[in-house]
């Protein structure tokens, strides 16, 4: 615990690719302290009292938005939710103008979910408010990557030296990218598993292994992170059908017997029960899916505290 010497200097959290190991450790240690707040009689601290947070979700999301909202409330910030349908973006206003209007309303922190990769970066460089990326296209979802890391560290004690399989729709997944960057930095080994259309070999350039054979990988891993098959983003050519996908890459009960008994089963949600993950396994002893949700709250409190606590003006 020598993090006393590390200082957070970022007003924004845009991705995990640019974070140092020390910065990631600082977020995780800060999250330890905020996780404890959830166990107190008063589950609220005044850390961001007087700050205003805007949840600007141009793409629909319930769990991430709710998690940020709860995190902000536990930090005593004031919060406003704006969804795409309710915003002036549908009237033709540009993202930059929307954000400048929010800034003129004294928003201190803008949490942005957007379907275009790079949208948070675009905003962050143009406004003084803190910008937190809550998922941008197929680019990054840094708080998800951090909460996955936090959960693995919590359950396994450390991340270094572990072998993590990320299974499924890697091509379209910002969760996969943030996980890959974070896990490799922290010294884990990562294998991506899925059909070649969704897990192209190009990913090897990031420093991960790629496999198209799930049964070969399962006995060797400490963690499986299953990604949701994103029906809404997919066209037919990526795989023939769900039946085919389940047959080859679904984590079924039969396949789960190949896992080590202490292997963690993770999923960022929402789960397609019976597609990427068998329903009983999702509720089973190896599943840490609900821990991920709880830890997500602590990690987001830490991120809001660190970025929002930096004087921006």
């Amino acid at each position: 615990m020598n993090s006393g010497t590390v200082h957070w200097t970022r007003k924004d959290l845009l991705g995990l690719r640019e974070l140092s190991v020390e910065e990631i450790n600082l977020v995780l240690e800060t999250a330890d302290a905020f996780k404890q707040v959830g166990t107190r009689e008063v589950k609220k601290v005044p850390a961001l009292q007087g700050k205003t947070l805007i949840n600007l979700f141009i793409e629909p999301s319930t769990r991430t938005r709710t998690s940020f909202e709860l995190a902000a409330k536990r930090l005593s910030a004031d919060i406003v939710n704006i969804s795409a349908a309710a915003s002036s973006l549908t009237k033709g206003e540009t993202l930059k103008d929307t954000a400048r209007v929010l800034e003129a309303n004294h928003a201190d922190i803008i949490v942005l979910r957007h379907s275009s990769a790079g949208a948070p970066q675009f905003l962050a460089s143009r406004i003084a408010s803190s910008v937190i990326n809550a998922g941008d296209g197929a680019h990054e979802h840094p708080t998800q990557g951090l909460l996955d890391l936090y959960t693995i560290r919590e359950k396994k004690g450390t991340v270094a030296g572990l072998h993590v399989a990320i299974i499924g729709d890697i091509l379209f997944s910002r969760v996969a990218r943030s996980n890959i960057f974070a896990l490799l930095k922290m010294g884990a080994r990562v294998t991506l598993v899925g059909p070649s259309t969704l897990v192209p070999r190009e990913f090897e350039q990031l420093g991960v292994a790629v496999s198209h054979n799930l049964e070969e990988v399962l006995p060797t891993v400490d963690v499986v992170n299953l990604l949701r098959i994103q029906h809404e983003r997919q066209r037919k050519e990526y795989f023939p059908g769900l039946g085919e996908y389940i047959r080859l890459f679904g984590l079924t009960k039969a396949r789960a017997r190949l896992l080590r008994p202490d292997c963690l089963i993770m999923h960022p949600g929402p789960i397609n029960r019976g597609v990427e993950l068998d329903s009983e396994l999702a509720d089973g002893a190896q599943s840490v899916i609900l821990d991920q949700v709880t830890n997500g709250l602590a990690v987001r409190m830490a991120v809001l505290y660190l970025c929002g606590g930096i004087a921006t003006r």
């Binding site: 957070w8 302290a33 850390a47 606590g309």
Partner: peptide, 22 residues
């Protein structure tokens, strides 16, 4: 007892205090 998340000067200091577990 960690006091950093209960301070009244967050946002006015150059460096944030590191939060510890109480």
């Amino acid at each position: 007892i960690d006091v950093s998340m209960h301070r009244d000067d967050i946002g006015t200091r150059a460096a944030l205090p590191v939060v510890k577990v109480s």
